[in-house]
């Protein structure tokens, strides 16, 4: 096969920064992974030709790096962290739920072709354990954090993503916790979402709760994700 135009462009844009073409091997293979959800032997051959490398050398590199898949994956690849913080938070139950729900083992594609779950090592998201990333392959590749998971929430996300595609991977409210050692008299909380945790304080005005984020990022989110704010209002009222 021919190497897709987007990957040729990716290589052409960067090649002047390196003394040889080989340096771009891993980034180029990662572009294949993003596009196809795997690195097929055909894609590996195309990368080898583009970078003037022996096919065997490219294959040896692919076999070393765990993010380069040599088997087909689903439309969404779920990287489920299983290192200690996440395991302690319940990764095993999440993986068990997935395998029961779809009748497939980690690494296999679900029958509808939507998901492949892989248990991976530390994703550097330990404060949001248990944590995972959803990768949606294709030209418009995107990675989404889906963390602070519970089995119920994971199940809900899987169903909504299967029905609604990548748009369903919006940031969701997981829980609201009172902050330990509040710095002053105001009501300090942790807003725990599927993407992060926000230290914030809450002000009540009329029937509405105004959430003041410690670094103002929720302000942007309010435009992008009004559902999240509806969830926060509902949770604070409840």
């Amino acid at each position: 096969m021919e190497l897709p135009e987007s990957i040729r462009g990716f290589i052409a844009e960067r090649i002047s920064r390196y003394p040889n073409k080989k340096a771009l091997l891993i980034p180029a293979l990662m572009e294949c992974q993003k596009l196809f959800g795997q690195v097929t032997p055909e894609a590996a051959q195309a990368v080898a030709s583009e970078l003037d490398l022996p096919f065997a050398e490219v294959q040896s590199v692919i076999s070393f790096y765990t993010m380069l898949n040599r088997r087909p994956t689903g439309e969404f690849l779920i990287a489920m962290c299983g290192t200690w913080n996440c395991e302690h938070g319940g990764t095993a139950a999440l993986i068990e739920h997935f395998t029961k729900k779809y009748g497939v083992e980690p690494g296999e594609v679900t029958k509808d072709g939507k998901f492949t779950l892989l248990r991976v090592e530390c994703l550097a998201d330990c404060h949001n354990a248990p944590s995972s990333q959803f990768y949606h392959r294709g030209e418009d590749f995107k990675a989404y954090w889906v963390n602070n998971l519970t089995v119920e929430l994971f199940d809900q996300v899987l169903d909504e993503v299967a029905a609604g595609g990548p748009a369903a991977l919006r940031e969701r409210l997981v829980r609201i916790e009172d902050k330990a050692n509040p710095p002053d008299d105001r009501r300090w909380i942790w807003l725990v979402t599927t993407n992060s945790q926000y230290p914030a304080w809450v002000e009540q005005a009329g029937g509405e709760y105004i959430v003041h984020d410690a670094y103002g990022r929720l302000g942007d989110l309010k435009q992008e994700n009004p559902q999240l704010f509806a969830e926060i209002q509902a949770a604070l009222k409840g």
Binding site: R14, R17, K22, L24, I26, Q33, F64, Y65, T66, C122
Partner: peptide, 27 residues
């Protein structure tokens, strides 16, 4: 300044392995 991506190998945080990886080799 060039941003270079890895592909999921903890060992590439070891300095000489990282250099191997930047040069397009197994880490």
């Amino acid at each position: 300044f060039t941003v270079h991506t890895g592909a999921g190998a903890y060992i590439c945080g070891e300095e000489t392995s990282m250099l191997s990886s930047i040069m397009g080799e197994r880490g």
